[in-house]
Design a protein around this nucleic acid. Structure first.
Lengths: 361, 361
DNA sequence: TTGTAGGCGTTATCAA
DNA sequence: TTGATAACGCCTACAA
């Protein structure tokens, strides 16, 4: 009749299917959801009608309004994806979360709150949210979500009211690393930090800068070191990747031997790998001339960092714990905050302080 | 009056805010969306009422039903996140996509279709979908989405009806790599492939296995090599990570010199890095004893692979292109398929065939 | 500039 | 086992 075969017309709806099948919309709904009692004959008829109309099942948007659930968990990162995922530790946490969330039929929505622009976070149809390290910048959004009753979990975030905390013993673990070096006799020790926020300032961190820092994990890890080395100089990086560590390493190590640190504590394994590369380029032997320790305990492909002295943290478990917490909160059950502990792993990148620093080489 | 201060009661809605502000719901809606004419006084009143009730803005679920848009783009991967993100090439593509999608106010929903279980893909409130390499396994889901009129874009997928193709010159690029080795005199060349699907079979790939393979990119890249080396043996891996390449390298190289390949073509840079590690462990020099080439042109931290001979592909651009296509399709505009080309990059891991294979070492 | 009305597509509740 | 009814919370013509 009509030559406009191009326009498929309005998409079929459940109501349309029901009409064609000669049943009520509610019955058709039951036929699809599998919930509730429907005779086989009726179900067949509904499915046949659906096939005929090319109906692909209930519209997820309508369903989520009606049910009050979207099946989506927001994963909030404060970096671009390529920066965040450059470090395997983040991928591991996300993987653990994804596993548990997936088992509960939830998918992950990637939310990168990278700037101060109006955040997509508050406009996203999420049932719950996991914050991967959250800084002050997000406070407004967090407020909105709290008002909406959206359960929130933070992994290594600054403890915040109404946000369940999945924490890591960053202070103690960093303290332990520093202790390890102190026991080896090191007295001139420098720290290469993760991004301190806000902004991506690269270079020495003085007290004023530190006081204005926003990234909780960076501050905590530095604190742990300074419990042992109160005056340890800190070098801030733009984030956890090898290049940044290399750059920091060159800045810290390419100086006269008598002022050169005998050990460097990097706040991540990736940064440590960069420091090792820098030492290599400067002709310094590790741990002969300088000791290097990392943090995270991730598997690195770089052979130089294969046996890094580091603190191993249970990253996947942390992600899983966040997932479990979310699932519980969504079920209306209470969830407990968690504190994960790191384990010291001795490698071959740390050793006794060089006996004669001056003139050595 | 009531001692139940614990129950915040039902969440406030736009209607509630409107009532408190003494305006109609539609006016309140306008006050929030910013669209349309509202007097400043009224807006103030509405916002004040919202603040008083703790209303955090329109419910995204209701909004997406009403508007027919959720602001969500699905990113479909066929692996666990940690596997997918282990290779920087995937992260790069995702980053490009995220950039463009984000500019258009869309967020990415991570959908890992890792098994044959009922897919979450068809139940997710997505406006559009980007498939990262899609195999036959997804055909049913793709069908559903097509019926629903959800725009789909595939990056390096098997060309499929109704799915916009963002392609890569995999055959030609692999051909070029093989040609390069052929020109250097190599005649005994082996291939280390990406996962072939279905399943994660590791080991030699014979013709029957190849015929049952599902992963398009793997098949294409192998095809390109076989145009030059019709009989090149292929070793299948479980995926693109260094360990897999190392394992493949050991299997292929730890044999008598007279049958050992003089060159290995890895289908990714990560796999190539693994092959280099294996060669190193076996005491083989590169490219003295064996040449190794990769694919992708990603930046690797492993110093051994710093100057890998490879084909550089514009991964971020591919992700961006997918994003642009999605944005156009969502706007009802037509979008063109794209074909990206790779660029040969000579490194120091490929060289002339060893003159005396036998007895060398 | 504001209000009224209707519906986006489902599903929960209840009664038949 | 099925059907009628009523939301879920919002937005957008259109009328006032």
């Amino acid at each position: 009749m009509n030559d406009a075969a191009v326009d498929p017309g309005p998409r079929p709806t459940l109501a349309g299917v029901a009409k064609l099948a000669g049943v009520s919309a509610s019955t058709a709904s039951l036929a699809f959801s599998g919930t509730g009692p429907v005779s086989d004959a009726t179900r067949e008829r509904v499915l046949a009608a659906a096939a005929e109309l090319g109906y692909a099942g209930p519209d997820p948007r309508a369903r989520s309004l009606r049910r009050g659930r979207s099946g989506i968990v927001g994963a909030v990162l404060e970096e671009t994806l390529s920066n965040a995922f450059r470090d395997p530790i983040n991928v591991a946490m996300l993987d653990g979360l994804s596993e548990v969330a997936g088992d509960a039929d939830n998918s992950l929505l990637l939310l990168t709150e990278t700037g101060p622009e109006r955040s997509r976070l508050v406009d996203a149809p999420v049932d719950a949210v996991v914050l991967f390290g959250c800084s002050v910048r997000l406070d407004d959004s967090i407020d909105m979500l709290r008002r909406r009753g959206i359960p929130m979990v933070a992994i290594e975030g600054k403890p915040t009211d109404g946000v369940l905390d999945i924490a890591q013993d960053n202070v103690e673990a960093s303290h332990a690393l520093a202790r390890h070096l102190h026991d080896l006799g090191h007295r001139r020790v420098a720290v290469v930090t993760l991004e301190l926020g806000p902004g991506r300032h690269i270079g020495p961190i003085d007290d004023a800068r530190l006081a204005s820092g926003t990234t909780f994990v960076t501050i905590e890890r530095l604190r742990g070191v300074r419990e042992v080395y109160p005056d340890a100089p800190a070098w801030g990086t733009a984030g956890s990747w090898v290049d940044q560590g290399r750059r920091a390493g060159r800045a810290l190590l390419d100086v006269a031997p008598e002022v050169r640190p005998t050990a460097i504590i990097a706040q991540s394994d990736l940064l440590a790998a960069g420091v090792l590369a820098a030492a290599d380029e400067l002709g310094l032997s590790v741990p002969g001339d300088v000791s290097v320790v990392g943090f995270d305990g991730v598997r690195l492909d770089d052979p130089r960092a294969a046996h890094l002295t580091t603190m191993v943290q249970p990253a996947v478990d942390k992600g899983r714990a966040a997932g479990h917490a979310i699932v519980q909160l969504l079920a209306g059950e209470p969830a407990e905050p968690r504190l994960f502990t790191s384990r010291f792993r001795a490698g071959d990148t740390s050793g006794p302080v060089p006996t004669a620093t001056v003139g050595a080489r």
